[in-house]
């Protein structure tokens, strides 16, 4: 069954079509939810809500954009609504209130340790999960999911400049987290070799 057939089947209430469409998109939807909220139970709940919304609204899908884009946007909106509703530990994007607490210290002339060989998939997932929520949201949307700053700004109700600024801070923080995970021994060896 193709995606188009599955969509038509869902509109007609065909159970198999729902399952086909779910299987086509479940991984991407769940991954997005989990990376945005970290908590597996909450990610599961959000995924279910996203698919329910999708199936409720599927009759309104006109095919102006790719179905995956439509579904993805719908999922992001649900996640952002949940975050706003819960008032979780998000970093506001409307105000640049970062006081530097979350950011690594700005050092001049510090040793040149780079991340070569450190950024494996598991380490990166953990580091992303450790980002403060506001940073993580922008980082996941931009760097992982490929949204543009103007789209993020629209979805999050902030300025494009704020989105760019938050992304930069998220990357700084992520780099700092990844460098912290680099084994100390390796750092010492690196120092000795320089």
């Amino acid at each position: 069954m193709t995606e188009a057939q599955a969509i038509a089947g869902c509109v007609a209430g065909n159970p198999q079509a729902f399952e086909v469409l779910y299987n086509m998109h479940k991984r991407r939807v769940y991954s997005l939810c989990l990376r945005m909220v970290r908590d597996p139970a909450e990610a599961e709940d959000l995924s279910q809500e996203a698919f329910m919304q999708l199936f409720r609204k599927i009759g309104t899908f006109r095919g102006d954009s790719a179905f995956s884009t439509w579904m993805h946007r719908l999922t992001v909106n649900i996640i952002l609504m949940r975050i706003r509703k819960k008032g979780l530990d998000q970093v506001s994007l409307d105000q640049d209130r970062d006081d530097g607490q979350d950011l690594p210290p700005k050092e001049y002339g510090s040793e040149d340790i780079d991340l070569l060989g450190v950024v494996d998939r598991i380490t990166l997932e953990k580091a992303i999960a450790a980002l403060p929520r506001g940073y993580r949201t922008v980082f996941v949307l931009h760097d992982v999911e490929g949204y543009e700053h103007n789209e993020i700004a629209r979805m999050m109700g902030c300025s494009v400049g704020n989105s760019k600024s938050q992304l930069f801070k998220a990357r700084l923080k992520l780099r700092s987290l990844l460098l912290d995970k680099k084994p100390k021994l390796e750092k010492k060896q690196l120092k000795a070799s320089r």
Partner: peptide, 24 residues
């Protein structure tokens, strides 16, 4: 700059995660 590129490469390698079976 190298680190940003390394992170970018790492992000490309992130794979979609499987939801639990009971979700469906």
């Amino acid at each position: 700059h190298r680190d940003l590129n390394a992170i970018g490469e790492g992000v490309k390698g992130l794979e979609p995660l499987d939801p639990p079976e009971h979700l469906w």
